[in-house]
């Protein structure tokens, strides 16, 4: 069974139809890249799956749990949060918490979550130590062991984005989403982020990446979707989409990046 399933997803903002029926699946361990021109609805897809936007119709499930089925339902905050933990989102412009240092940015959410555990009162100290150890391990993986005590305002863009990736990884989402993770960065800093994501792909992390980095998308993904004006104009393996695009629109779009 697919770990992420999106079926006939539609979303309007006022009168403009931004998603006009989008369907795709992602299997465990796969890396899906979503490419396409500005305004084609890529971010909206991620925001719908991550419950930041309510779709108008369609179906979304993650790891067998139904996120959305046809229409918006009244539900508790509790319900929403339980599902939320199955997915993670890395924003284009990081959204780190400025008042916390790097370590705390990464441990905050799991710590708050742990407070709800039944054994929290008894094992408080141990739980916090475990969370901290895990955070340090993940921060080491993204190459930030020497920045634990720094505040976000003291970091470069690339470092900030690595913190935000670590922050999302802490909750071990079933699917990790990236929305143009390198677009806010200076060109010389994009490499370090792409390297981290490649590392995650090698660890078989299931990911959905919206990106304008074509060669990266080609190298890292198992599947590529080309979005055009709210619909999937083309989908397939990187070879199919990049080397033998079927549609004219895809060819035109990709050729803009060839140089």
């Amino acid at each position: 069974m697919a770990i992420l399933e999106v079926k006939d997803l539609k979303k309007n903002f006022g009168k403009t139809q931004v998603l006009k029926g989008v369907s795709f699946t992602v299997e465990e361990g796969e890396v899906l890249s979503i490419i396409g021109s500005s305004g084609s609805g890529k971010t909206t897809i991620l925001r719908c799956v991550n419950q930041l936007e309510t779709p108008d119709s369609g179906y979304i499930s993650v790891d067998g749990q139904v996120f959305f089925n046809g229409k918006a339902e009244k539900e508790s905050d509790e319900e929403r949060r339980r599902r939320q933990l199955l997915v993670g989102l890395v924003f284009q412009d990081f959204h780190l918490f400025p008042q916390y240092n790097v370590l705390k940015n990464v441990t905050l959410a799991p710590e708050l979550l742990a407070e709800e555990r039944e054994d929290y009162k008894h094992n408080k100290k141990q739980i916090h130590e475990e969370i901290e150890a895990k955070a340090k391990e993940i921060l080491a993986k993204v190459g930030l062991s020497d920045k634990l005590e720094n505040y976000p305002c003291e970091l470069s863009g690339g470092q900030k984005q690595r913190v935000s990736i670590a922050r999302a990884l802490m909750l071990e989402p079933k699917v990790l989403f990236f929305d143009e993770p390198t677009s806010a960065l200076d060109p010389e800093l994009t490499g370090e982020i792409l390297k981290v994501i490649k590392g995650l792909a090698e660890d078989k992390t299931t990911m959905v990446i919206v990106t304008h980095e074509m060669s990266f998308a080609k190298a890292v993904s198992t599947k590529v979707i080309f979005m055009d004006d709210g619909v999937i104009a083309e989908a397939g393996t990187p070879e199919e989409v990049f080397d033998n695009p079927k549609s004219e629109r895809t060819r035109a779009f990709i050729s803009k990046f060839d140089d």
């Binding site: 419950q51 930041l52 905050d77 939320q84 918490f97 905050l108 959410a109």
Partner: peptide, 23 residues
């Protein structure tokens, strides 16, 4: 405060009151 701060909290599974108090 930017909307992104709230959204970062939501995506990390925090409750509304946690987002307000902690972020």
């Amino acid at each position: 405060i930017s909307k992104g701060q709230y959204e970062a909290g939501i995506v990390l599974g925090m409750t509304k009151s946690q987002i307000f108090k902690k972020i």
